[in-house]
Simulated scan of single mutants.
Amino acid sequence: MPAGHVGADGEAEHFENDEDAYWSNRTRDVLASGEPTVAWDEAVRQLETGPGNACG
């Protein structure tokens, strides 16, 4: 038997709208903070090895 969620009409769309608003606010706050951006591959490297550690 497949598993699934049965919810009110529009519930999934409401959730997506809330998620979009959350990430829009986070993006605005980060850009306003003046902190430097980090390329995705550098962020992954830092998560895997720790800040300041060279990889390869």
Rank of each mutant, 00 (worst) to 15 (best):
T27A: 15
C55T: 02
G7A: 15
R45K: 15
E11R: 05
P2Q: 13
H14D: 09
C55P: 00
R45Q: 14
E11Q: 07
H14W: 03
P2C: 06
E16R: 10
W23S: 01
R45H: 12
M1W: 09
N53T: 08
P36Y: 03
N53R: 14
D29T: 09
N17K: 09
T37P: 01
C55N: 05
A12L: 13
N53C: 04
T27L: 13
A3Y: 15
N17S: 11
C55Y: 14
T49G: 07
G56K: 12
D20G: 02
D18I: 00
A12H: 03
T27R: 13
E48Q: 15
A43P: 04
T27S: 11
V38I: 14
H5D: 03
V44I: 14
G50M: 08
Y22W: 10
Q46A: 11
D41N: 09
G7R: 12
N17V: 03
A21R: 13
A54V: 02
T27C: 05
T49I: 01
C55M: 05
E19P: 00
S24E: 10
H5G: 00
G7S: 07
G50C: 09
V30D: 13
G50V: 09
W23H: 12
R26E: 15
E35K: 02
A8P: 00
G10P: 05
R45D: 06
S24T: 08
G52T: 08
A21Y: 11
P2T: 12
R28T: 13
G4V: 06
T37S: 12
S24V: 01
A3F: 14
H14R: 13
E48S: 15
D41A: 14
L47P: 00
V38Q: 05
N53E: 06
S33T: 06
H5S: 02
D29Y: 05
A39T: 06
T49P: 00
E13K: 12
